[in-house]
């Protein structure tokens, strides 16, 4: 049925109303769904390791630790300060390894190289290795996110 001055028939109007309502209902379910499929991030705020394990580190060597799910490296500068790096390549997220005789970090995925301070020096990595802040407190080392 179409009234003389109307643009729609009653059926077209009802179809639009019902269809629009169903579409809105469907859309309303998407947002909680999208929320559910990304779990909350689990990167630690800080990690503590016993100082005893790291205090005998000589300069130009590194020792690993676990930064949450990622490998981390702790090293000591000539001045005796601790530095911590996240051992994940900044190119495409592969875990890097320390090559002692070259004093460099190496990523096997796409042949990326970082110097011992984590600076990207060769290959595709676009940025230095991520640095973490290290504080000595009594007999423990506290590694924290920087900034």
């Amino acid at each position: 049925m179409k009234l003389p001055a109307s643009l729609y028939t009653r059926r077209a109007f009802l179809n639009g109303l019902l269809g629009g309502w169903l579409a809105a209902l469907g859309t309303a379910f998407i947002s909680p769904l999208l929320k559910y499929i990304v779990p909350p991030t689990r990167e630690p705020d800080q990690v503590t390791v016993p100082l005893a394990d790291y205090k005998d580190l000589v300069p130009h060597t590194v020792k690993g630790f676990a930064w949450g799910n990622k490998p981390g490296f702790i090293k000591r500068t000539e001045a005796g300060e601790f530095v911590a790096l996240v051992g994940v390549c900044t190119h495409l997220d592969c875990n890097v390894t320390f090559v002692p005789d070259k004093r460099r970090f190496y990523c096997a995925c796409h042949e990326g190289w970082f110097d011992e301070d984590g600076l990207n020096i060769a290959g595709p990595p676009p940025a230095p290795l991520r640095r973490l802040a290290v504080a000595v407190e009594g007999e423990t080392l506290i590694v924290k996110r920087q900034g």
Partner: peptide, 10 residues
């Protein structure tokens, strides 16, 4: 191993 460095020849 989530902590191990990436193997050669990925």
């Amino acid at each position: 191993d989530l902590m191990a460095p990436a193997p050669e020849g990925v």
